[in-house]
Design a protein around this nucleic acid. Structure first.
Length: 466
RNA sequence: UCCUCAGUAGCUCAAUGGUAGAGCACUCGGCUGUUAACCGGGGGGUUACUGGUUCGAGCCCAGUCUGGGGAGCCA
């Protein structure tokens, strides 16, 4: 590394290589304790979840008083000799010969060496990655991103970058963020006073994407297996621990694949990423298991070693009706499953991940493939304990007559979907895909219960600070 | 948007309608191996805001603001 720094990660990987040698580290003080002529610093350099204990002594460094007065959060460069530690809590420590103060941290530093509420830490989102929990969360987020790419790349999926700015409302979801360069007061308007967007940057109404699925389908019908992994935006005024205005989504799409293939892929993917994180972030996962969610590792282990249950919507409704449980919303065929129903199924009935398939067409999106019963569509939701719906997918309607009929029924403008319909006119084939909420995956793998605490700088209604 | 809970020191929280407190943090002092070190002294408050009830309001009432949790929507 530049300037000859050793990282704490390297020390933990092979301490034998450094014992008795003089090394140099740069990092931030997590905790500092001093006596009259010696003291201890818990130093974190960002490379590793664990800290390095730095011992500083008055007769060994020339700025003992300065160092002893340093506060939590200060940035220092420490040079010294790595030795075995007599203390029980760490295998080795650094006996400092020189400590250079790079950036002190005055007494009003908002992060203390004590437990803070997540709520408070959200107000200091620029500092919270320096805390244990968020250090673990965001390293997991990084490792999980890589695991996703690794999973798909190993299976020869092509990574496709679908547009962030999309035209019109062609993705069929809820509220969208408009993208415009126009002054809202000066927009050209039609007879009814609605803006025409003719003079706007793109010459038409544009929004931030709510899904990359439709363009991903186009690429699936060229590359066979593709996936997207990028930011997604929803302007819904949602106030829950599971919704954010800006989040990341993974959307694989496979040609020559049906709903069973889709579920197989989702199950394989979940197991792969769980396994990858357990193997590559063991310190972080242990921390989550100890301080965030005591049953986490046992639950994940259970998931790795079990087959995901698969039931139809019709079976799910029947199970819920027979459960004897009193729900706030009564269960009835034709109604969408409420959160309380989903939680009951995954947390009580099956106590693990469960796919629910073949929902009534009325409660699902236009592009989902109509089943032979003419009443249900080939859709699937993967429900997991604690998080609820983590994956939502379907086999897509490849028969253009039926797709057109659905568009008509829903009074959607066929012209807007001209290129999507083209995919059915030229070499269409059965195909399927799903969307995985990336943040929900992080929540599931960490036990964190609020989506705001797994996004570095979260955007939610009324909140876009930082 | 609806329901619900909360707002007291920098942080985490106490305080029967009757003088606003503790722990941590901070500051000063002590301590020759600490582990969110320990021991002692000290500073720190418009109790979210506005109005009302009362001899007296952090506490009761009304409204506002902010935040949490839940619902809907979804990933």
């Amino acid at each position: 590394m530049r300037e000859g720094f050793i990282t704490i990660k390297e020390l933990f990987k092979d301490p034998q290589a450094y014992y008795g040698k003089t090394i140099k580290l740069g990092g931030w003080i997590r905790n500092i304790r001093d006596s009259k002529v010696f003291g201890f610093i818990d130093l974190n350099d960002g490379s590793y979840f664990k800290n390095l204990q730095v011992v500083f002594e008055a007769d060994r460094i020339d700025n003992f008083d300065q160092v002893a007065r340093l506060g939590v959060g200060s940035a220092i460069i420490a040079e010294g000799v790595l030795t075995e530690s007599p203390g029980a809590k760490q295998p080795f420590e650094l006996k400092a010969d020189q400590i250079t103060v790079e950036g002190p941290s005055p007494s009003d530093y908002p992060l203390q060496k004590k437990r803070h509420t997540f709520e408070y830490l959200r107000t200091i989102a620029h500092l919270r990655p320096r805390s244990n929990t968020f250090s673990a969360v965001f390293r997991l987020r990084s490792i999980l991103s890589y695991a996703i790419h690794k999973f798909f790349m190993e299976r020869d999926f092509v990574y496709v970058h679908t547009p962030i700015i999309t035209s019109a409302d062609a993705e069929g979801a809820g509220e969208m963020f408009k993208v415009t360069t126009l002054d809202p007061d000066k927009m050209a308007r039609d007879d009814q006073g609605r803006p025409t967007y003719e003079d706007d940057f793109f010459g038409k109404l544009t929004n931030l994407t709510v899904s990359g699925q439709l363009p991903a389908e186009a690429f699936a019908l060229a590359f066979r297996n593709v996936y997207t992994f990028g930011p997604t935006f929803r302007a819904e005024n949602s106030h829950t621990a599971r919704h954010a205005s800006e989040f990341w989504m993974i959307e694989p799409e496979m040609a020559f694949a049906d709903l069973e293939d889709d579920m197989d892929l989702a199950e394989d993917m979940m197991k792969f990423i769980i396994n990858y994180c357990l193997e590559n972030a063991p310190e972080e996962m242990d921390f989550f298991n100890k301080f965030i969610d005591k049953g986490l590792l046992e639950r994940l282990d259970n998931v790795l070693n079990s087959e995901f249950k698969r039931i139809t919507y019709t079976e799910a409704v029947s199970l819920l009706e027979k459960s004897g449980e009193k729900f706030d919303y009564p269960v009835k065929w034709g109604m969408d499953l409420q959160t309380e129903h989903e939680r009951y199924l995954t947390e009580k009935t099956f106590k693990g991940p469960v796919f629910v398939t073949d929902y009534p067409k009325e409660i699902k999106a236009f592009y989902m493939r109509l089943n032979d019963d003419q009443k249900t569509v080939a859709a699937m939701d993967l429900l997991v304990p604690g998080v609820g719906e983590i994956v939502g997918g379907s086999q897509r309607e490849e028969r253009i007559e039926i797709l057109d009929k659905r568009l008509d029924e829903l009074q959607m403008n066929k012209e807007e979907y001209w290129w999507y319909r083209d995919l059915r006119r030229y070499g269409g084939t059965h195909h399927a895909g799903f969307g995985l909420g990336f943040e929900r995956a992080i929540m599931y793998l960490s036990g964190m219960t609020n989506i705001r605490d797994v996004i570095p700088f979260p955007r939610t209604p009324n909140s876009a600070e930082f």
